[in-house]
Simulated assay, not measured.
Amino acid sequence: SIGTSHAVRVINKQPQLNYQYQNFAYNIKEGQYLIGLPSNNGADVLSCTNKVFNSSFEELNLVAAKRPHTESIFVPYLNGERAPIWNEAATGNLFDITRVSSRESVLYSIILGMIFNIKHNVSVLEELTDFKAIGLVGGVTELDGFPQLISDILGYKLYIPVMKNAETLGSIAVVKDIELPREYRIVEPRFGQSYDALFKKYLEKV
């Protein structure tokens, strides 16, 4: 889920816990545990960007769709950070700005930083439990340039519920054993453009 903050979660049969990652593992019903990691930073990073750069979600959406070249790295810990680093004093940082950097490339770096932070937590979740696809909810799914970029960077097929308030209703359905209508917009990852090098640079700055 990507709202003001973000979180990654999986329902698992075992309560997987890792002291280093400090993940949560809530017993939601017999034999089912909600395992995941919470972050302080999600789409709030985009809202802050709009204030600082006098941009808009429409402009950020166009940048996410256009994907301009960038070598800059943005670490998005604007609100301190829980997972993956657990440091309330952490701050946001923009690295590797040069004379050829443009407004578009800087905005794109910030967008990538937000998604790389999510990828970092998804990578940790991969070590805790198995999953093959991701259900994505949150306001960013309404910006058509973002879901494909998120899928490409994470490397997973995305299932985006058509139903409003799907996250809340889904939680109720799991606990109460209720079947809800399942209608999704599916986004498949495209592997033509690799983000591995930029993500490696990002991890070196974290």
Rank of each mutant, 00 (worst) to 15 (best):
residue 97 I to L: 15
residue 62 L to H: 08
residue 86 W to R: 05
residue 72 S to L: 05
residue 60 L to M: 13
residue 53 F to L: 11
residue 49 T to D: 10
residue 36 G to H: 05
residue 36 G to V: 06
residue 57 F to P: 12
residue 50 N to R: 03
residue 78 L to T: 10
residue 93 N to C: 15
residue 101 S to H: 04
residue 81 E to A: 12
residue 86 W to T: 06
residue 84 P to E: 09
residue 78 L to C: 08
residue 99 R to G: 06
residue 78 L to Y: 15
residue 72 S to M: 11
residue 57 F to L: 14
residue 40 N to I: 02
residue 45 V to D: 11
residue 59 E to D: 02
residue 105 S to R: 07
residue 49 T to V: 00
residue 52 V to I: 15
residue 86 W to F: 10
residue 102 S to A: 02
residue 90 A to Y: 07
residue 67 R to C: 08
residue 52 V to M: 10
residue 95 F to Q: 08
residue 52 V to K: 06
residue 72 S to D: 01
residue 79 N to V: 03
residue 112 L to E: 13
residue 92 G to N: 07
residue 57 F to R: 00
residue 87 N to A: 08
residue 89 A to M: 08
residue 53 F to N: 08
residue 54 N to A: 00
residue 42 G to Q: 05
residue 111 I to K: 05
residue 50 N to G: 14
residue 54 N to V: 00
residue 61 N to T: 13
residue 66 K to W: 01
residue 106 V to F: 01
residue 67 R to T: 07
residue 98 T to P: 06
residue 66 K to L: 01
residue 102 S to R: 04
residue 81 E to D: 12
residue 92 G to Q: 06
residue 43 A to D: 08
residue 60 L to W: 04
residue 74 F to G: 05
residue 83 A to M: 10
residue 94 L to R: 11
residue 70 T to F: 01
residue 112 L to R: 11
residue 102 S to I: 04
residue 106 V to M: 11
residue 92 G to R: 13
residue 40 N to K: 13
residue 103 R to E: 10
residue 56 S to L: 12
residue 80 G to L: 05
residue 107 L to Q: 13
residue 66 K to T: 01
residue 77 Y to W: 13
residue 103 R to V: 06
residue 99 R to F: 15
residue 37 L to I: 15
residue 99 R to V: 13
residue 65 A to H: 02
residue 48 C to G: 00
residue 101 S to R: 05
residue 38 P to E: 12
residue 97 I to Y: 03
residue 100 V to Q: 10
residue 88 E to H: 11
residue 47 S to N: 10
residue 66 K to Y: 04
residue 53 F to Y: 15
residue 74 F to R: 11
residue 84 P to F: 06
residue 114 M to T: 15
residue 65 A to K: 00
residue 40 N to V: 04
residue 100 V to L: 09
residue 74 F to L: 04
residue 50 N to H: 02
residue 57 F to W: 09
residue 50 N to D: 12
residue 77 Y to C: 01
residue 37 L to Y: 05
residue 55 S to W: 08
residue 52 V to Q: 04
residue 41 N to C: 02
residue 68 P to M: 08
residue 103 R to D: 06
residue 107 L to W: 10
residue 73 I to F: 08
residue 105 S to H: 12
residue 96 D to A: 14
residue 94 L to Q: 07
residue 66 K to N: 09
residue 98 T to A: 02
residue 111 I to L: 12
residue 54 N to I: 00
residue 55 S to G: 04
residue 56 S to V: 09
residue 77 Y to E: 01
residue 106 V to T: 14
residue 42 G to H: 09
residue 61 N to W: 11
residue 37 L to W: 03
residue 73 I to P: 00
residue 71 E to C: 10
residue 49 T to F: 00
residue 109 S to Q: 02
residue 65 A to C: 03
residue 81 E to R: 01
residue 109 S to H: 04
residue 86 W to C: 03
residue 41 N to Y: 09
residue 64 A to P: 04
residue 90 A to K: 12
residue 87 N to W: 04
residue 69 H to R: 01
residue 51 K to M: 13
residue 47 S to P: 00
residue 110 I to F: 03
residue 90 A to T: 05
residue 103 R to H: 12
